[in-house]
């Protein structure tokens, strides 16, 4: 990569996607979603069973971009200061010095986020929403490129704390990886006979490339009609039966931004209804709070979103 040839935003996307593909076999859709969140400035929550490659995907992304990357393994005894940082008294100059926590980075991998108590989970709220942390009354901005990839096991698993709704709303997207096909699993085995392919990954994009990608996403055009469609879909989740808490306007915003990213990935200068529909489920579903009784009778947030998509007439 030379300085006189800077890749186009779409090339950046394709390069990162190809890099991740080397490690994550058969997860092109998940990669696309993850990058859409990165490109639109949102954070991602990966939820799946242990061993499906959540951490590997997050690490592959971090290693593909030549930026600072930190990882926090969330445990039940983790404290907010373990993430944000702490002021320590220096005996020599008799002053407090702030020791930055792992949150001061470009990419933060919050592994198994729901193993920490809600208190610690909440420490990330301000950082994720506003790109800054306030410690001891002092506002400390994070770097311009700040991106959280959190992973978690399904909430029903032992030793987990469910994320507060407010925290859930901070994640632009949540999606599962799912099990890959048998052939792809065989390929994974073959790849890892000698060493993990993660070790072979080389960065293929710089911080500048990524920021350029983000700016390009903002430039993707979207018509008034589609904005209205997004609002209609999000609003419909609020009135759907069996839903206690519908999606917020922040969700509408996230749908629009990620749809713009998807349009850019497809080389389109404007958003189409397909792009919107593609991102609605991963962007909205995790924000809905389903009525316990409805949940018991088999209603899922994903199902609510699918039903809404089916019902609201899509512009064509």
């Amino acid at each position: 990569m030379t300085t006189n040839h800077s890749p186009t935003p779409r090339e950046t996307y394709e390069a990162i996607a190809a890099n991740i593909e080397k490690v994550m076999k058969g997860q092109a859709a998940a990669t696309r979603r993850l990058l859409a969140a990165v490109a639109s400035g949102g954070h991602v929550l990966l939820e799946d069973f242990p061993g499906t490659g959540k951490t590997t995907l997050a690490k592959a992304l971090a290693l593909s971009i030549n930026v600072q990357f930190k990882r926090v393994q969330f445990t039940p005894d983790l404290l907010p200061s373990d993430i944000i940082g702490v002021s320590v008294f220096d005996q020599r100059d008799r002053q407090f010095h702030f020791h930055e926590g792992p949150v001061f980075t470009n990419i933060l991998l919050a592994d198994e986020i729901n193993r920490a108590s809600p208190r610690t989970q909440s420490a990330l709220l301000e950082a994720m929403a506003e790109g800054q942390v306030s410690v001891e009354g002092e506002r400390r901005p994070l770097s311009e490129l700040f991106f959280v990839v959190a992973t978690q096991n399904p909430v029903e698993f032992r030793g987990t704390y469910p994320l507060p709704e407010a925290q859930m709303d901070r994640f632009a997207m949540q999606f599962e990886l799912g099990y890959v096909s048998a052939e792809q699993e065989v390929a994974i085995l073959t790849d890892q006979i000698h060493n993990h392919p993660l070790h072979l990954i080389k960065p293929c994009a710089s911080e500048q490339d990524l920021l350029r990608l983000r700016h390009a996403v903002m430039e993707v055009r979207i018509s008034e009609e589609l904005k209205r469609y997004i609002v209609d879909v999000v609003a419909a989740t609020r009135g759907a039966s069996g839903v206690q808490l519908g999606a917020s306007p922040r969700a509408s915003l996230a749908v629009m931004k990620t749809a713009q990213a998807m349009a850019l990935f497809d080389g389109s200068g404007f958003v189409t209804p397909e792009h919107v529909q593609e991102v609605v489920a991963p962007v909205i579903a995790h924000r809905l709070v389903i009525d316990p009784q409805a949940k018991f009778s088999g209603l899922t947030a994903r199902g609510v979103v699918q039903e809404v998509l089916r019902r609201i007439p899509v512009p064509a």
Binding site: R311, I312, P313
Partner: peptide, 30 residues
Amino acid sequence: YAGADSEFYLIEKHLTQAGLPRREGEPLGE
């Protein structure tokens, strides 16, 4: 909205009459 006079709608009408209507929430790609 823009483009309401697109000739594509004639095609959609034709296909609907042929028994292949587009569903309400179904985008064109699908």
